[in-house]
Amino acid sequence: MSFLVVEQIGPMATVQDLGRKGLHHAGVSSSGPMDIPSFRIANALVGNGENSAAIEFAGTGGSFSVVKPVRIAVTGGGVDIRLGKQRLLPWESYVLLPGDVLAIGALRDCVWGYLAISGGVDVVPVLGSRATHVRTGLGGHEGRRLQAGDRLPLGDASAGANLALRQPWRRSGGPIRIVSGPQDDYFSVETRRAFLKASFVVSPARDRMAQMLDGHVVHAEGAHDIVSDGTCAGSIQVPASGRPIVLMAERQTTGGYPKIATVATVDLPRLAQIPSGRTVCFASISQENAEELLIAERSALRQRLATLVEKPETYDVSGGLPS
């Protein structure tokens, strides 16, 4: 069996796939990656299926070694990657051989990074997914964050070329787009207008469950408590403190705070990648527009993945030698 050995690791690294589906009614969160496009690109670069498990990390990656040759790729944003003395680039795949150490440093101008390994991280699925839900100790590697000394089993890797994106994957700019509700009627017209005009600061109080926003205080005239109802990724809850809370991948499935709006799915990875201390603002769009934007982005991503560029040297991962 092939393993990825964790030599050193950052504080927020977990095993993730695309998450658990269809279990919210049972109180089971979806989990999955914070930045789905970056996750999918990483898997494509090493020849994996889109739902193969990979490592998600925040801030700093770590160092890794293997017992058999594999292809690796790191995505998410700018980051220092080294294989011994060789400097590697993100958004490209490389061969990692036994005896070598892959070192992934600090991310630049983003928060979440992804390390994909050919064959995928082959931990045992729990409730149909390999994704880690840290707060409940579900899935992933022993239901927890990764730590130095972990040995992660890898699936069988097929031989193939090292690949790169023909063009960088760029996130859109401008305000974060939101859809009103579902409890926007708890907020006055003046409050909703002020919400759209205001600037918020991304707080350091953030994790895979939620992101706090500082700066402008939001008051719910209709009360800050509701009968708990379902949440979704991107729900913007407003508790009595007036500090908006944006629910993310590892969110709870229900909540008792009114939700003034929901971040459009197409912009949720962009919000997740904004470093703490940066300023964000919001723009309201219709649900129909949000759906159209997401469909367009998914189409663009499929086209990009279909046109990955083969790098000059190709490698047979089974033997670790140029082919």
Rank of each mutant, 00 (worst) to 15 (best):
residue 4 L to Y: 04
residue 100 D to T: 12
residue 96 L to A: 06
residue 274 I to S: 01
residue 283 A to F: 15
residue 84 G to R: 00
residue 121 V to A: 08
residue 250 E to K: 07
residue 145 R to K: 15
residue 312 P to N: 08
residue 268 L to D: 02
residue 213 L to C: 04
residue 173 G to F: 10
residue 13 A to G: 10
residue 150 D to W: 06
residue 117 I to L: 06
residue 97 L to F: 01
residue 145 R to P: 09
residue 48 N to K: 04
residue 31 S to M: 06
residue 102 L to C: 09
residue 184 D to S: 11
residue 208 R to K: 12
residue 91 W to N: 12
residue 235 S to C: 12
residue 113 G to D: 02
residue 262 T to G: 08
residue 140 G to Q: 03
residue 23 L to A: 08
residue 151 R to Q: 14
residue 214 D to P: 04
residue 116 A to V: 11
residue 265 T to K: 10
residue 123 V to W: 00
residue 200 F to G: 06
residue 246 V to F: 04
residue 172 S to E: 14
residue 158 S to H: 12
residue 180 S to L: 12
residue 123 V to N: 01
residue 72 I to Q: 04
residue 197 K to Q: 15
residue 46 V to G: 08
residue 201 V to D: 09
residue 179 V to G: 11
residue 255 G to D: 00
residue 81 I to C: 11
residue 156 D to Y: 13
residue 298 R to I: 08
residue 234 G to K: 00
residue 153 P to R: 03
residue 83 L to D: 07
residue 171 R to P: 06
residue 50 E to H: 10
residue 314 T to R: 15
residue 180 S to D: 09
residue 271 L to G: 00
residue 47 G to H: 05
residue 138 L to T: 04
residue 151 R to K: 15
residue 86 Q to L: 13
residue 29 S to K: 00
residue 59 G to Q: 03
residue 111 V to G: 00
residue 280 V to P: 01
residue 102 L to P: 04
residue 104 I to Y: 13
residue 71 R to E: 02
residue 13 A to Y: 00
residue 291 E to S: 12
residue 247 L to W: 09
residue 174 G to K: 01
residue 272 A to S: 07
residue 40 R to W: 06
residue 246 V to A: 06
residue 19 G to L: 05
residue 270 R to S: 05
residue 101 V to R: 10
residue 34 M to D: 06
residue 275 P to A: 08
residue 57 F to R: 02
residue 174 G to C: 02
residue 40 R to M: 14
residue 239 P to A: 06
residue 116 A to Y: 05
residue 47 G to D: 08
residue 291 E to F: 13
residue 65 S to I: 08
residue 294 L to R: 14
residue 219 H to L: 13
residue 91 W to T: 09
residue 68 K to S: 10
residue 244 P to V: 00
residue 188 S to R: 06
residue 281 C to T: 15
residue 303 Q to D: 13
residue 16 Q to A: 01
residue 295 I to C: 13
residue 161 A to S: 12
residue 29 S to P: 02
residue 69 P to M: 00
residue 14 T to I: 14
residue 48 N to G: 01
residue 310 E to R: 15
residue 172 S to D: 13
residue 218 V to G: 02
residue 53 A to K: 02
residue 8 Q to R: 14
residue 133 H to T: 13
residue 223 A to Q: 10
residue 243 R to F: 10
residue 144 R to G: 10
residue 308 L to F: 05
residue 289 N to Q: 14
residue 127 L to C: 11
residue 24 H to F: 11
residue 257 Y to A: 02
residue 266 V to S: 07
residue 112 W to Q: 01
residue 243 R to C: 10
residue 263 V to K: 00
residue 9 I to Y: 04
residue 3 F to A: 12
residue 8 Q to D: 11
residue 58 A to D: 05
residue 222 G to A: 11
residue 111 V to K: 00
residue 34 M to E: 10
residue 199 S to T: 12
residue 143 G to K: 09
